[in-house]
Design a protein around this nucleic acid. Structure first.
Lengths: 146, 146
DNA sequence: GTTCCTGCAAAAGCTTTGCAGAAGA
DNA sequence: TCTTCTGCAAAGCTTTTGCAGGAAC
């Protein structure tokens, strides 16, 4: 996926985030690598092309991006926090065998009215997580009950 | 809530978990304190009545209970893992202000068929998390947009 | 010049691990 | 006796913090 850096800069500015080169790089990485990477994965990959990048900056940047809604933080993997540059409404599936996290489409315009009772709560965000076995791991295991 | 220890013992045995006193105590605590406590909260409270209890044992026990489905682990609070002894299908809401976690009822028999596309996935569990402001925090803030 | 960004090193905090002793079957 | 459970201490990791130098405006 080829992303225009200028577009990313503008997107950050629209959210009131000063678009430093490193911040743009992190945002770009998340959009180009929609695999829900951990902080360490982001750092290790970007560090190759930007040797002066520190992990602290990756942490700082992600905190800002998440705080401004430019990026989602996923609490699906009990080992690490994961980050998602795709912020449109969707759910996630984590494979208990290979650990990969998959995006799962939510029906257009779907909300949880009628399925849950949220009376009295001022809801700001919703996350729907699934776990189990992905197609590949499931077939490798011979379709036997896991 | 008064829980029969014998009942808990039988419940653990039915899941193949040897019901030592400390394991029963942890399970009982989770059922009697459905506030989604952290490991540290469980440890600190139980330690008062069972001074010989160690945090290692709390960790060990929770791992076994979660592994056997007797307890749910909740990844809703980015600081700590939380535990829930109530394993029937329900969703959770975390208040961004006070940090409390609330159980949210799911419509009886509800599943996500039709709302999400899980073709190819062998789904073993689903978690639905909401965040925002609870009724009390919302009213204290004067109902202004948070 | 002032503000904000960044990196280093250290600290903090949660969780896991190894091992030895204790408890239970 | 043999297996399992438990506690202690240490280690491992992720994440946060304090501070000083540097960049941007």
């Amino acid at each position: 996926m080829i992303i225009n850096e200028l577009e990313i800069k503008r997107g950050l500015q629209n959210r009131g985030i000063r678009p430093s080169n490193k911040r743009v790089a992190v945002m770009k990485y998340l959009i180009e690598n929609p695999v829900h990477p951990t902080v360490d994965e982001i750092y290790r990959d970007l560090h190759k092309s930007i040797p002066s990048l520190s992990k602290t900056t990756v942490y700082n940047t992600l905190k800002i991006l998440v705080g401004n809604g430019a990026v989602l933080s996923l609490l699906i993997d009990d080992k690490n926090c994961r980050y998602d540059g795709f912020t449109h409404s969707h759910a996630h599936f984590i494979c208990n065998s290979c650990g990969k996290i998959f995006d799962v489409g939510l029906k257009e315009g779907y909300n949880f009215n009628g399925t849950v009772d949220l009376k009295g709560f001022n809801v700001k965000s919703a996350h729907l997580y699934f776990s189990g076995y992905c197609e590949l791991c499931n077939s490798l295991a011979g379709n036997c009950e896991q």
